[in-house]
Design a protein around this nucleic acid. Structure first.
Lengths: 201, 201
DNA sequence: GTCTATAGGTAGATAGAC
DNA sequence: GTCTATCTACCTATAGAC
């Protein structure tokens, strides 16, 4: 089935906003990619800001849903870590521009924007995982680490390599296929790294 | 001593470019912050692009020098990890906008820009640390991990929490002072986390 | 709904007086 | 070196025909 005009606009806006950021994005380029004209863009979304919000909100909700799905799974901690790393790196590799997009817009638009955005329904909620980590510590099954710190470590290890891809490729002088291959191997390595760090001696 | 006009310009440009990014930065705002007028800005730096490059190159060189200093230190691996985490988190906390700035510009301007930029003299060189890790593995003193992956993990754990500060604060509902305090505590925690992960059982 | 044309505003860059 | 004034280009947004 043919995509509707609105779908074509959103798809085009996603690509342009995510790759260039809000300020550098051009309504003309979005119109061109959607194969319509600028006037029609404003007919559907009255302003650049409104179109941006539509794209950003969707990306943020997708990001949140993907992450919460694993946070909430009712499985043992070590399995959950493995699943989290595997699924989350896969999700990020499928949308490699998303993390840099979300991070830089949140940084640029100031804390007011971040606050407003994070007050919505669909947002990351690490509490189930935090609680699970606390239980494991209380039961003496893993080392006594800061639970929030551990969740932050898991996220850092998955997201940063995607954010830093251009820098990493430049410094290490590796081609894109080799980079992709390394990320694939990292799924296993990162899970082992985290589990080794918290497993009781 | 009074700062020269050029110093005032660079200082103002740093603040504006780092917080807003290239596209959203305005020459007018830079002029205002430097307490001069737009015309004079163009007298010193003929274009916005040239001014941006001056700021970016300086930030990138500073970033690289700080990191290389620890990569090259001739001390035992576990000590080096502790020093790296401590110093690098401190450096980042003193320039909290720098990582997001460098990362997003490298992502937005495409791989050509990244390639060109990374071909300069002062750039991050993790090879001394990679070699040291390989030696430790060969000597059987740490677990056999991917050396490049380990360096990437160290960087991820230090940089990502700074990049994600607005998101982290929003999700965890913590104030700025509490966030700063958590980052301070992380210096110790992250070093222990990494060492636990690679120490032989 | 979709197009063309254009209004209205703003930003980077230049000219020229002092 | 520093200023004011202005040019030129571009971009968002609107008006109006079809």
């Amino acid at each position: 089935m043919e995509p509707t005009t609105e779908e074509k606009i959103l798809e085009a806006a996603r690509e342009v906003f995510m790759n260039k950021g809000f300020a550098a994005a051009r309504m003309q380029e979005i119109a061109d990619r959607a194969e319509i004209n600028k006037g029609l863009l404003h007919y559907y979304y009255r302003s650049k800001n409104k179109l941006f919000r539509a794209v950003f909100d969707e990306a943020f909700a997708k990001f949140s849903a993907g992450i919460n799905q694993v946070f909430e799974a009712e499985i043992p901690l070590f399995e959950k870590i493995e699943q989290f790393v595997d699924r989350y790196i896969s999700l990020l590799m499928q949308n490699p521009a998303m993390p840099a997009f979300v991070i830089s817009e949140l940084n640029q638009k100031g804390d007011a924007f971040a606050e407003e955005l994070l007050s919505r329904q669909t947002r990351p909620n690490p509490m189930p995982l935090v609680a699970q980590i606390q239980q494991e510590i209380a039961a003496g099954r893993i080392k006594p680490v800061n639970p929030i710190g551990l969740v932050l470590n898991m996220l850092s290890l998955c997201v940063f390599p995607i954010l830093a891809r251009p820098m990493f490729q430049g410094i290490m002088e590796v081609s894109r296929p080799v980079y992709d291959q390394m990320m694939e191997a990292r799924k296993q390595e990162v899970a082992e790294f985290i589990i080794s760090a918290i497993r009781k001696a």
